[in-house]
Design a protein around this nucleic acid. Structure first.
Lengths: 212, 212
DNA sequence: CTATGTGAATTTATTCACAGCA
DNA sequence: TGCTGTGAATAAATTCACATAG
């Protein structure tokens, strides 16, 4: 019942948001309870992995029955610290940045992009969704806000400078789309999403193709 | 010297594109040779991991000196099957799809987006970069092309149908941005990029925040 | 003397198999 | 009886330490 935090494996943490999404979807289909087997089929995983993952932070199921979906969603959110709203600031309103600003998928996990920055004077002052683009040289306005997450969608040349600015303004988590490593203090967590490197390992797994 | 393919770990394959990017960057800075230590510092990794990873597919270094960058780039490309150009088709020209169409980062690895599809008649016929958007119900035009990779940027409701169409048209690798599992034949490889789930595990690693 | 390459040791993650509870 | 929860077994990945080649 009580949540145990003692060393949840990173790989488990990586899977939890997927489970959370799956449970929310199952709940919306009207289900109240779900067994590990049923849930595994639903999201394309295996039941023992799911049970093991859950076991790292507590015991939530009912033997012979399965898991109470509502309750489990609540616990997963608690473990992932998604049981409170999170505000993020996005820096770099190019094509990708704009796409993320209008992306609706973050809401599911309680995220809201609350501010956007760019260094292009033609963009500053413009409004996307309900966010007015601010000058990237004024990241320090974040200091007085509740924003603790930064999303970096600037070219790699500018990414370290922006990172420093964000850290300076009190950001402690960064989702980085620039294809490079960012140097940050230990207290700041960076997760890098690299679309190109993901694409780059696809051919390795594809059946060999004859070159014309 | 000769490339050994006997079971390269998945985690190694995941890192190789990052190494490749780093080596290309180091080469552009004029370097000819680089030691595992130097390279590790450069990309933010550790030297023994790098050496171990390389050792899975051959021996390319010179003891006492390091690695010949040019040569190593060539071998990495060969292992990843990036030593030939790859053409991809993108389906779903929304915000994210448009961002990817104009993204220049794929070229580094030899990828080119050669076709784009959407089901919105207002978009069909329009040109982005040098690609004319085609009707998504005509994916089968890919059959006669050299395109073997699909990039899916449609809403999740449409993703399985599009996947089926791509597979039907001879695609054997898919980069999926829809937040769901896709069912494909065994011969087809899917790599799913999920931006929202990556963001969702950030708070877990961030120092706890007081809720006002 | 330097830096690679790799077996061996260690750590981490996955899978199994079944005891135990509803 | 059915399904969870978890130790034990297995597998995979990382780290170490050092022999070996240039």
């Amino acid at each position: 019942m009580a949540i145990r935090y003692h060393k949840i494996p990173d790989e488990t943490i990586r899977r939890l948001p997927v489970y959370l999404r799956g449970l929310i979807a199952a709940g919306q289909e009207g289900k109240k309870e779900i067994s590990s087997q049923e849930f595994a089929d639903f999201i394309g995983a295996n039941p023992w992995q799911i049970r093991k993952d859950f076991s790292y932070f507590g015991t939530f199921g009912t033997r012979g029955v399965g898991y109470d979906i509502e309750k489990l969603i609540k616990q997963l959110k608690k473990v992932l610290r998604l049981d409170m709203p999170h505000r993020a600031a996005l820096v770099g309103v190019g094509n990708l940045g704009t796409a993320l600003l209008t992306y609706s998928g973050f809401g599911l996990y309680g995220f809201e992009i609350a501010a956007a920055f760019d260094n292009d004077s033609k963009k500053i002052g413009k409004k996307i969704r309900n966010i007015i683009i601010e000058d990237a040289s004024c990241l320090n306005t974040l200091k007085t806000s509740k924003v603790k997450i930064g999303i970096i969608t600037v070219p790699k040349e500018a990414s370290q400078k922006i990172t420093d600015g964000l850290v300076e303004s009190g950001i402690t988590g960064i989702l980085n789309f620039a294809p490079c490593r960012l140097t940050v203090p230990k207290k700041v967590k960076v997760i890098t999403v690299n679309i190109a490197t993901d694409l780059a390992r696809l051919p390795f797994y594809m059946p060999a193709i004859k070159t014309d």
